[in-house]
Design a protein around this nucleic acid. Structure first.
Lengths: 190, 190
DNA sequence: AACGATACGGACTGGCGACTCCGGTTGTCC
DNA sequence: GGACAACCGGAGTCGCCAGTCCGTATCGTT
């Protein structure tokens, strides 16, 4: 599941699809998911017809953008998890997820609002991340770096929430750093 | 500014206005701000005309709901701040704001997206809360209960973010409590 | 009770945005 | 280089929703 197309896309089609995804990612994260579909098509230099051929629904486009993001995160997380020891890996991945998550909560929200069964494709890639995080969390807890009473749901919620916190702060790096300190301190055992 | 109407509302008008506000608060927070205006009118047992007479714009309705919420929070915060000593007051108010804030971030977001510079009326009541929180923060820091390098913007961002975290957790009380522990621990000096 | 002022209801309008359709264009394969 | 399939573009359709309008009902006052 999730493999290549049965018949490979024609060159121009593949180009357009990729460009559409890039533009959509950019536009949705900077200006919100309320941006009209047509505008994204224009920005990508294609007609709306083309957009809707590749993504039969606006929601599908949103989903594709999100999935791609989740995959990027999962990849980086995996690399980091392999190279570092438990505590370091855990906190490093936390940072990583947050930094990659700017404006993402709006996505999930928009998808959720549009009726939940969208998540077939989404569920798959988010399950990957969930699994990674669960392992990371368990490792860090065993290493005594994170309070043992914290479960995966709380961690996920905390990731979303910290992302929202950061969205509020914009690009004030020192402030963002202080937030990380607060949250990380709070995560360590008493 | 913000005083009573010049001429008092007729009895039925006042009733309808209040009912509209109640229903809007309920519906917007439980089902999101995307709910059609007409539905709110129906739920309140009035016609759309009535709704738009009281609130000339959907945005105005959103704003009224938000202002009312902020005022409630400010009131409770003031009471709590007066009765307790610095540290207790600070953390108590933090809890209070969070508990009153379910789904609120979506509001500000919706208002901001509507191109408003977050309206005059709103600014007023949010300024009140901001001032209260600033005082509370300073008090708690002087009492040595909160790390001294934290400023008001970070606190506000943290409130929004923690609210988002809680929204994720729904009504899982034990989990919510653990989140409070994490955040509060993180807020205390090293 | 009767009258003016105030408020109500809900059919109606205008605009916007997601999605469709099909004549034209472009890639690909022999 | 030609023929066919795959793909493109964007004008047009359709439904939805914020906001208006005006005939009707209700309130408050004398």
């Amino acid at each position: 599941m999730g493999g290549a197309q049965v018949r490979p896309l024609r060159a121009d089609a593949a180009r357009n699809r990729a460009r559409l995804l890039d533009v959509a990612t950019e536009v949705f994260t900077t200006r919100g998911v309320g941006v009209p579909t047509e505008e994204i098509a224009r920005a990508a230099g294609v007609g709306v017809g083309t957009l809707f051929r590749h993504f039969p629904t606006k929601e599908a486009l949103l989903e594709a953008v999100l999935v791609r993001r989740l995959e990027t995160i999962a990849e980086q997380t995996a690399r980091l998890a392999a190279e570092a020891e438990p505590a370091e890996a855990f906190f490093g991945c936390f940072r990583l997820v947050i930094d990659q998550s700017a404006g993402k909560s709006e996505f999930t929200q928009a998808l959720a609002a549009a009726g939940v069964d969208t998540q077939a494709a989404l569920q798959e890639s988010s399950a990957v991340i969930r699994a990674q995080l669960a392992e990371l969390l368990a490792g860090a807890q065993q290493a005594g770096a994170v309070r043992p009473d914290l479960a995966l749901p709380e961690l996920l919620a905390l990731l979303v929430g910290t992302g929202a916190t950061m969205d509020q702060l914009g690009s004030d790096l020192p402030a963002r750093e202080r937030i990380f300190e607060v949250v990380f301190d709070g995560l360590r055992p008493r």
